[in-house]
Simulated scan of single mutants.
Amino acid sequence: MDRSRTKNVTVFDKSLATRGKSEVNLSTFAFLFSELVQYNHQRVASIPQLQERLAELGQHIGHRMVDVLCWRDRATKRETRLVNMLLFIKNNVWKTLFGKEADSLEQATDVPGTYYLFEEEPLVNTFISVPNDFSGLNCAAFGGGVVEAFLSATQFPAKVQTFWHGKQQNKTAIRIQFEDSVLLREKMMEK
C-alpha cells in the first residue's frame, strides 16, 4: 500500500456534527468555572472588575465558537440578518455551551438596535457561592462576553452588558446594543 497517497486524518479534520455525544460533565464544568471565578476574585477589588474579567474570558470562548459553529462544519449558512444571527446565538450557541437554549430574546421598544437575551437561571451562576461583600456578582457576564465576541467576529459589532433582571437575583438580562453601522446595513438590506 502506498502511504504517500493516503491522507492522515486528525481529530481536527473530522466534523463535529458526526461525533457522538460531546457534552462536558456538569460537575466538571461547575468545578472548573468556580475555580476560574475564585482565581479572578483574588485579583480584583470590586464586583464590576470581576464581571469585566469574566466577560473577557467569555470573549475568548465566543471567538472560538465562531470557528466551531460557523466556519469549521459549514453545515449552516452564514447569517447576514441581525435577527437571524441573534436567534442563532439564542438557540445554537447557547445550546452548545450550556446544554439548553436561552430563555427568550426580545427587542427593546424604546431604543432602536437594542435587544435583550434573557436567562432565568444561568448555569454559570448555579454552582457559585460568593462572599457577602460580592453578593451582587452575576457570573453570567461570562455569557455576555461570549455574545459580544461572537457578534463581533461575525460582523455584527455591538456593546453587550450583563445585569440582574427583576427583584430576585436569579434572572439575567444580556443587553445588546448594536453599532450604527449594523443598523444602517440592516436598513439597506430591507430595500
Results as ranks from 00 to 15, higher is better:
155 Q>T: 11
140 A>W: 05
106 E>C: 02
77 K>E: 12
68 V>N: 04
113 G>V: 03
84 N>Y: 07
132 N>F: 14
153 A>N: 09
179 E>F: 00
5 R>L: 14
98 F>A: 12
93 V>T: 02
28 T>E: 13
22 S>H: 13
141 A>W: 03
25 N>E: 11
27 S>K: 14
178 F>P: 00
91 N>A: 07
118 F>W: 05
90 K>A: 03
15 S>N: 07
75 A>I: 10
46 S>A: 11
172 T>P: 05
150 F>C: 04
125 N>A: 08
60 H>L: 12
116 Y>S: 01
1 M>I: 07
43 R>M: 11
35 E>T: 06
52 E>N: 11
123 L>G: 03
8 N>G: 04
94 W>P: 00
51 Q>L: 07
128 I>L: 15
122 P>D: 07
148 E>M: 06
10 T>M: 01
41 H>W: 14
97 L>N: 08
85 M>G: 04
189 M>R: 13
172 T>G: 07
64 R>H: 10
171 K>V: 13
49 Q>G: 07
59 Q>K: 12
92 N>F: 07
96 T>C: 12
10 T>N: 02
103 D>V: 00
27 S>D: 13
72 R>I: 08
11 V>T: 12
12 F>I: 08
94 W>M: 14
182 V>S: 02
16 L>D: 15
127 F>W: 13
137 L>V: 03
38 Q>P: 00
119 E>R: 02
125 N>V: 09
29 F>D: 03
115 Y>R: 04
45 A>T: 15
127 F>D: 13
83 V>Q: 07
174 I>S: 05
187 K>Y: 10
171 K>H: 12
150 F>T: 02
67 D>M: 03
16 L>N: 15
82 L>D: 01
97 L>D: 02
53 R>T: 07
130 V>C: 10
115 Y>D: 00
133 D>P: 00
93 V>K: 06
69 L>H: 06
122 P>H: 08
64 R>S: 09
22 S>K: 14
187 K>I: 04
28 T>P: 00
180 D>G: 00
44 V>H: 10
115 Y>A: 01
69 L>A: 08
141 A>N: 05
142 F>A: 00
177 Q>I: 03
10 T>R: 05
182 V>G: 04
77 K>M: 10
109 T>P: 00
152 S>Y: 01
18 T>W: 10
183 L>H: 02
120 E>H: 12
109 T>Y: 10
190 E>F: 05
56 E>K: 11
158 A>H: 03
186 E>T: 08
151 L>G: 01
96 T>H: 12
137 L>I: 04
39 Y>C: 06
36 L>R: 07
185 R>S: 05
142 F>R: 04
34 S>A: 14
68 V>R: 09
189 M>D: 06
41 H>V: 00
